[in-house]
Amino acid sequence: MNLVIDIGNTCTKLVAFEDGEPIEEKRIENDEPQKMKDFCKKFSFERGIYSSVIDLSRQFVDIIISLPFSMMELQPGVTDIPIINKYKTPHTLGSDRLAAVIGANYLNPQSNILIIDIGTCVTYDFINASGEYLGGNISPGPTMRIKALNKFTARLPIIERSGSIPEIGTSTETAIRSGIMNGIRYEIEGYISKFSVKYPGLFIYLTGGVDINLHIPEKMRIFANKFIVPIGLNRILEYNNE
């Protein structure tokens, strides 16, 4: 069995893999790494992998390396990976973005794939049918946009992300929420439309912690998969142990 640790901006995701399949997931806060040990007691892990998009505390790293099985770290630009990375600055590539394209390529080899991750940021990453990662784009996520409107204006308030999202806002609260959430939706739909024209038969994976109600033709091959990053990390682990 394998342990995958995906450390994001807001929380850490622990996923147990058996025979290449995720069988259990646990989320913990980034300031409570000791809970990793409790999760590990439930399984007989043989090896593991971790990646992080934040700078880890010494305590966090010490707990990872003290686990009773070998752990490897995904280091973009350093770790061997089963795809061709054409990103011009591979060492600066987010480990979550790299793992996501590897996971998508593992699930659908020899396919053109667009991966959209909606979380703290909204990221768009593309890997072609030849297994070449060509790059992607990064956009602010909904919470970041809400905070930016408050910070850079004199009177716009912080609002809750969840709530009514009319087509046209009828109050300052709904104007902000609708502007942000509908804006992200239109942005995503625009990317999907453009890539689908350029790459017929395109596969699209949606992941991340934010739900967006997209208006997409049913004929498009769109899949929601919350495990796309862990699947990629597990694939990297297996690749480095083959």
Results as ranks from 00 to 15, higher is better:
156 L>D: 10
205 Y>D: 01
193 S>C: 13
24 E>I: 12
153 T>W: 05
44 S>A: 13
230 P>V: 06
115 I>R: 01
1 M>S: 07
217 P>G: 02
99 A>F: 00
45 F>V: 03
112 N>H: 10
175 A>E: 10
57 S>H: 07
71 M>F: 04
197 V>E: 15
173 E>F: 14
108 N>S: 11
148 A>R: 08
34 Q>M: 12
159 I>Y: 06
80 D>T: 12
138 I>C: 01
82 P>I: 03
9 N>V: 10
75 Q>I: 15
44 S>V: 13
25 E>H: 09
177 R>D: 12
26 K>S: 11
77 G>K: 05
2 N>W: 06
158 I>A: 09
83 I>N: 04
178 S>E: 09
224 A>V: 15
191 Y>G: 07
47 R>Y: 12
182 N>S: 13
73 E>Y: 08
7 I>R: 02
167 E>T: 14
194 K>A: 12
194 K>T: 14
59 Q>W: 09
235 R>E: 11
233 L>N: 00
242 E>K: 12
128 N>P: 02
240 N>I: 04
154 A>N: 13
95 S>D: 06
124 Y>S: 02
61 V>Y: 08
190 G>Y: 07
22 P>R: 04
61 V>I: 14
236 I>T: 02
106 Y>I: 03
9 N>D: 01
230 P>F: 00
151 K>D: 13
113 I>K: 02
47 R>V: 12
166 P>L: 01
230 P>H: 01
131 G>L: 05
114 L>P: 02
37 K>H: 11
94 G>D: 00
231 I>G: 03
170 T>Y: 15
219 K>M: 12
60 F>M: 05
155 R>H: 12
229 V>D: 07
181 M>K: 10
161 R>M: 15
201 G>S: 08
231 I>D: 01
171 S>Q: 13
112 N>T: 06
222 I>T: 11
23 I>N: 00
6 D>E: 04
10 T>L: 06
172 T>C: 10
50 Y>P: 00
78 V>A: 08
49 I>N: 01
232 G>Q: 02
242 E>H: 14
215 H>C: 12
229 V>A: 07
78 V>Y: 07
133 Y>T: 01
91 H>V: 11
204 I>C: 03
149 L>A: 10
188 I>G: 01
17 F>I: 04
134 L>T: 03
95 S>Q: 00
242 E>F: 11
194 K>P: 13
59 Q>G: 05
38 D>M: 14
164 S>G: 06
238 E>W: 05
113 I>N: 02
147 K>L: 13
153 T>M: 10
125 D>Y: 03
21 E>P: 11
163 G>Q: 11
